[in-house]
Design a protein around this nucleic acid. Structure first.
Lengths: 191, 191
DNA sequence: TCAATCAATGAACAAACATTCAATGAATTA
DNA sequence: TAATTCATTGAATGTTTGTTCATTGATTGA
């Protein structure tokens, strides 16, 4: 790894971070290459020395996000309610301490639900479905009485919506006080 | 009211509805006049016979949204927990039955938190603060023991994030099952 | 030291965009 | 019916955008 390659990689990371912040606050179309270049202090032309296109830059961010904490809902041996408590706690604590993760969370939501993203990004994300595996865990909790009755998909929607909304607000507005993970988990908890 | 004026108003409403759907799924910059014109079957030039600019069209939507149900958090005589139950129920039932309201909900969130909106729209919304009046009601509920302990602002954030997230999913994806308002209210409820 | 490589810029380009406008034909009014 | 108003279009305009490229210095490797 030469010095030049090392600095190039460092510069790429700067661009990715600036792009992430801009994309989540201004959207894909609303963010220009000039915006991003300006944020890292370089000319617009130079951007294409680091990323082949705006689309590829966005794609690089989303690819990084796919390995993030939201997309690790796997079948678990844990007691279902414990799983949701731990998951909510883990995500909220990421969000509180690591602004990059909080912003990445918002980006993944945007990339998944907005139509203002390149087709190549959409293609990457169509397979990603968080509600089906979540609903499966919820069903298990309903069977042993720890999770309240109700449509498992609707319960999953309520749970993830709350987390997503909190992440979004905290990413944009870091000085807002963060809710407790327990409050979110109580959306699911049987009384 | 002549026949022509009547039809013009009807056409304006069609444009507003098409614009609303496009703006929430593609963002402000990502939505072109041609998109909207195409959706209502007219040429792009004709749009400017109905709205002076893209910005004014968006502004018209947001102005309509300001009188919507999210912005009616007023000091109330109701028991606080009852207030939140009623509020959640009212909003979710709007969202289930009236797609326009669900979409308007998403638009207001976008207009408030995105930087990809005209400055004139931002100016309209800076005064709009939902969390301060909500926190005041939460504090009252904590005093009489019906609402759980915790930072009232953080509790408000959790409550509205959940509602916002549900609205967004339902607006984009109408065949998703809708959560019960009670689950959302339980974010606040003391045990 | 010298040639080759690479970061960096700013000008140039084509496409897309919001917006304007002259022209047309239908609907309204007198 | 005649005159006027208005909805509608498509072409034209000026700006912005993503992207390319020739050029320039600096850095590297031999």
């Amino acid at each position: 790894m030469t010095i030049r390659e090392d600095q190039k990689e460092k510069r790429r990371q700067e661009i990715l971070f600036a792009g992430l912040s801009l994309f989540i606050s201004k959207g894909y179309s609303g963010t220009t290459i000039k915006d991003i270049a300006g944020a890292v202090g370089m000319s617009a032309g130079l951007m294409f020395h680091y990323f082949a296109s705006k689309e590829e830059l966005y794609l690089a961010l989303v690819s990084q996000g796919i390995e993030g904490p939201m997309n690790s809902v796997q079948p678990t041996e844990l007691e279902p309610m414990t799983f949701f408590e731990i998951t909510a706690e883990r995500i909220l604590s990421y969000i509180k301490t690591q602004p990059f993760v909080a912003k990445m969370f918002v980006l993944m939501h945007q990339a998944t639900y907005s139509d203002d993203v390149p087709a190549s990004v959409k293609a990457l994300l169509t397979k990603l479905d968080i509600h089906t595996p979540t609903a499966k865990i919820i069903r298990k909790g309903q069977e042993n009485g720890t999770i309240r009755a109700g449509d498992p998909l609707a319960l999953s929607l309520a749970f993830w919506s709350a987390i997503q909304g909190v992440a979004e607000t905290m990413a944009m507005n870091a000085d807002m006080p963060c809710p407790e993970s327990e409050w979110i988990a109580d959306i699911l908890r049987a009384k």
